[in-house]
Design a protein around this nucleic acid. Structure first.
Length: 226
DNA sequence: GAATAGATTGTCT
DNA sequence: GACAATCTATTCT
């Protein structure tokens, strides 16, 4: 589907790639979630560069949103990053074994964040393969299972809880950051895996690039039910 | 393709 | 002690 990132040599791309400014994140969370589609996630460390194009996000908007970890403005050690300044990472462990990567948005103290749910691999695919094969031996370089879910992409990009609170902005670019990419088309659906959130589970706060094979679940599947 | 079970642990009541 | 912004394998159709 994407024709992005095929013509520039890695050296040239690295020199040109800049982190998105904090002003990108310091906006209403729904706008940021939508605008993240098509942007590129970059992880550079230990001489390794891994990049992918974001194709699925979700917005979480406390304190009213019952699906957000900041629902009711209950501040805890875990959700502290969500209350911090925009442009930082909020990372947590879920189901005892999976990592989720979020972008803190809006104004400090609001408790808003964007979950990165899926992306399309661009660079460092052999490295993604190595990391993902630690738990899924059958995965191949062109398999959607490489990065088509929030836990999967964190494993593929070697993102861990140690990256919580990391600043994603600055010059030169930090270890983890977002950079510009071609604007993506967008479709909205309800969010995934938040059946406990009452009527908030119906909010169309999930953003996907329609038709992209790395989206975690198809809209048809998502919208089935009462 | 869809539905289901089981895994596994930090966090909060 | 219950639960969770999930993933994988298995068992169906």
């Amino acid at each position: 589907m994407s024709s992005f990132g095929v013509s520039i040599s890695p050296g040239v791309a690295r020199a040109r790639t800049r982190a998105l400014p904090r002003s990108f994140y310091a906006r209403p969370v729904l706008q940021v979630a939508r605008d993240c589609l098509g942007k590129v996630l970059n992880v550079r460390r230990q001489g390794i560069e891994i990049t992918g194009r974001i194709v699925e996000t979700e917005a979480y908007r406390g304190p009213q949103d019952l699906a957000a970890h900041t629902a009711g403005n209950v501040r805890t050690a875990r959700n502290e990053a969500m209350y911090g300044p925009a442009g930082h990472a909020y990372i947590f462990l879920i189901y005892g074994m999976h990592i989720h990567f979020n972008l803190v948005t809006g104004q400090e103290g609001q408790g808003h964040a964007v979950l990165i749910r899926a992306l399309e691999p661009l660079q460092g695919i052999d490295r993604m393969l190595r990391y993902r094969r630690r738990t899924l031996r059958s995965v191949t370089s062109d398999s959607p299972a490489l990065t088509n879910g929030p836990g999967k992409l964190c494993q593929a990009f070697d993102i861990s809880r140690e990256d919580n609170l990391r600043d994603l902005c600055g010059q030169p670019a930090p270890e983890i950051f977002l950079s510009e990419g071609p604007r993506a088309r967008c479709r909205r659906t309800p969010r995934i895996g938040i059946d406990y959130a009452g009527s908030w589970r119906l909010k169309p706060w999930r953003f996907i690039e329609p038709g992209n094979r790395y989206v975690s679940r198809s809209p048809r599947t998502t919208l089935t039910g009462p």
